[in-house]
């Protein structure tokens, strides 16, 4: 399993640097170990997952239970809408398509600094090429209007972040099972 931290080049967001110093410092070894282990086990390469989430704690919680899955899913993270769009369109810091592969699934938070998740969703779902990428909104908001709007834009699933650890575990398990095991995703990128 690969976890790739897309550290924002934007120096205006210093917390990200701090966060990256803190947590991932001890992690790469573990990841590499597990990746090696799982690669031996599974022959099929899982498509990457892009998580657009500004909260480090929420991201950490998500990744924590994602990691427990036996499926090897490369994870890319963006912390705001601009980054996510740059990632998908290979612009800005992501001109190299190797560093920004086309994701098989986007986990999208709605309330993001700057360009928020609603805008990202709208842009992606209006793009002929990108709209095939399934998007799961994973957000705090249970506002009926948000739910309605997101489905109008063509979101594939809308999940309200629970404040309940057991529920969280179940939610993540179901996401992975559904989108990476049960579902056959379109693999071909048109660009």
């Amino acid at each position: 399993m690969i976890a790739i931290f897309n550290i924002s080049p934007d120096q205006m967001v210093p917390q990200q640097g701090a966060q990256n110093r803190d947590e991932p410092s001890k992690e790469p070894d573990q990841h590499l170990q597990r990746m090696t282990a799982t690669r031996d086990f599974f022959t099929q390469q899982m498509p990457p997952m892009l998580i657009v989430e500004d909260s480090n704690e929420d991201f950490e919680s998500f990744r924590r239970y994602l990691r427990r899955s036996p499926l090897q899913i490369p994870i890319y993270r963006c912390t705001n809408g601009e980054q996510a769009l740059a990632f998908l369109y290979h612009t800005g810091n992501y001109t190299n398509s190797q560093s920004a592969p086309r994701p098989g699934l986007i986990i999208l938070d709605l309330n993001l600094p700057g360009t928020d998740g609603r805008e990202v969703l709208r842009r992606v779902k209006q793009d002929e090429s990108l709209k095939k990428i399934p998007i799961v909104v994973f957000t705090t908001s249970d506002n009926p209007r948000d739910i309605e709007d997101c489905y109008q834009f063509g979101v594939n699933s809308y999940i309200v972040k629970p404040i309940n650890i057991e529920q969280l575990k179940r939610d993540i398990q179901v996401i992975i099972d559904y989108w990476f095991d049960v579902t056959t995703l379109s693999e071909r990128s048109e660009d």
Binding site: E57, D58, I163, I165
Partner: peptide, 8 residues
Amino acid sequence: EPLRGIHN
């Protein structure tokens, strides 16, 4: 959001 963090 922070509440969820505390919980988790």
